[in-house]
Design a protein around this nucleic acid. Structure first.
Length: 428
RNA sequence: GGAGGGAUGGCAGAGCGGACGAAUGCACGGCUCUUGAAAAGCCGCGAGGUGCGAGCCUCCGUGGGUUCGAAUCCCACUCCCUCCGCCA
């Protein structure tokens, strides 16, 4: 969440920044009013509390002095003040809860450098690799679901039989390819990132910390019996690893990577791009994650984009980098770069990575701070996360791109060590 | 699932109804001593909110309760540890 003090002291800046992402200024005015009401309620509550405490102290003194009559009088007075305090307290707590709730629903302020825009159509293509348009043969113009079925790599029908539509089931070499990709990614980032294997069912608090709750409840799977949520991304558990903690500046940047299944209900995307692996409810993804100081955040963001890009180059996939406009940046992020690969069979650009800088928005929700080496009180860390990469769509792009005139699929050499050398699928 | 123990500041750990936001140690910051460092000594040192300020308020796992007054007593819950049972 954003800092209530910023809202209070400079509402115009907040209105302007959030206006860039389509938040109505009226919401800020409402929040300012709620905040003023809450502070006034807390003030009168606190005055009464101070009175009760002072009287109680006097009761104790009178009692020790043996003045029972005086003690009784003071106790009665304190009791009356306490009753009054209770009603004021209820009012104050309700007012504070209203402020907190409003803050939890407000998105992060976009970074000044993020381009302006209302929606996906306004995102800026920063670069495309390779720059020259690539030529694709007819043999590559076959969608991955057909290739997957032909070569026995992907069985969407049996996946649906088990779990409903949009739950892929990989078979044989197709399954091995997913595993290979995950190992390839984790090994590649082991130089700077500690590998984590987190739980994928998490508490409500863990989902609130990243901003996935309460606003986006409809997008997540919930296990009701135990009140646990299936993570939509490893960013969720990784953010909460140090929730409520105070780190040392020397610990930063603290970088983590994790390969997990990701679960998404895709509630708002009914019927759109749902064939094959384009949009699925469950997919594997390797995530890069970092806690940093504010100064380290921008270079860290650039570094994460570069790492994801490097993988796409080595996988031989054509891709482009998008600088998301203010209207399309995710709720918790201040700046986001998306990576899309071109997949010739479906003739589409597929989003395979989203790298975001969340400034202190998540850290404030999760109370993650660090003690500056230069001294002074603890300050909020910055959090960054980026996919490297999401495998379902990479799988699709690899299979479509690598398809040969004879119908077999040739995979990039970098995966050879993870495929027991077998980089050709369906040969002969 | 059963029995027992526990949860207090960055960490460890005392306190078990009244000046306790909390002893002590470690860590950390400043100073003295020293050529420098170490050691030693002295001083400081939790977080948040609110107020121009003195100050006031909140926080001892969470939520309720008892009381004039709760870190301290009672109830419920969560989590951790030990043992037993079950289990991939």
């Amino acid at each position: 969440m954003i800092d209530i003090r910023l809202v209070r002291e400079d509402a115009d800046t907040v209105k302007a920044a959030l206006g860039r992402r389509g938040v109505d200024a009226v919401e800020i005015d409402r929040l300012v009013a709620l905040d003023a009401a809450a502070r006034s309620a807390v003030g009168s509550r606190d005055e009464l509390r101070a009175r009760v405490k002072a009287l109680s102290r006097e009761v104790g003194e009178a009692r020790r002095a043996g003045d029972t009559a005086r003690a009784e009088t003071l106790a009665a007075e304190s009791r009356a003040a306490g009753d009054e305090e209770r009603t004021h307290n209820n009012r104050a707590e309700a007012a504070q809860e209203a402020v907190r709730r409003a803050l939890l629903y407000l998105p992060n302020l976009p970074d000044a450098e993020a381009p302006d825009g209302a929606g996906p159509e306004d995102n800026v293509v920063v670069r495309t690799w390779p720059e020259a348009p690539a030529a694709y043969g007819d043999h590559q113009r076959v969608p991955h679901w057909d290739i997957g079925a032909q070569l026995g790599l992907l069985d969407m029908a049996r996946g649906a039989k088990l779990s409903g539509s949009m739950f892929p089931l990989y078979r044989g070499a197709g399954a091995r390819l997913v595993r290979a990709l995950e190992s390839f990614a984790l090994d590649r980032h082991a130089d700077e990132y500690e590998e984590i294997r987190p739980p994928t069912l998490v508490l409500t608090e863990t989902m609130v910390s990243t901003g996935h709750l309460p606003k986006f409840e409809e997008d997540a799977y919930h296990v009701e019996r135990d009140d646990l949520w299936a993570i939509p991304t490893a960013e969720v558990p990784l953010t909460s690893m140090w929730r409520g903690d105070v780190l040392d500046e020397a610990d930063l940047p603290l970088r983590l990577t994790a390969g997990t299944a990701c679960y998404r209900r895709e509630a708002g995307a009914a019927g759109r791009d749902t064939r094959g692996l384009l949009r699925v409810h469950e997919f594997e993804k390797v995530e890069l994650f970092a806690y940093t100081t504010p100064e380290q955040a921008r270079p860290q963001l650039a570094s994460m984009v570069a790492r994801a890009e490097g993988m796409l180059r080595d996988l031989g996939l054509r891709y482009r980098v998008l600088d998301l406009c203010s209207g399309d940046i995710g709720n918790s992020a201040a700046r986001t770069f998306d990576l899309e690969v071109y997949s010739p069979g479906v003739d589409m650009w597929l989003e395979v990575s989203s790298v975001s800088w969340c400034s202190d928005y998540q850290a404030r929700r999760a109370a993650i701070r660090y003690r500056p080496a230069a001294g002074g009180g603890p300050v909020f860390v910055h959090t960054l996360n980026g996919s490297a990469l999401a495998w379902a769509r990479i799988w699709a792009a690899l299979v479509e791109t690598g398809r040969q005139p004879d119908g077999s699929v040739v995979l990039p050499e970098v995966l050879a060590p993870y495929l027991r050398g077998g980089t050709v699928l369906g040969a002969g």
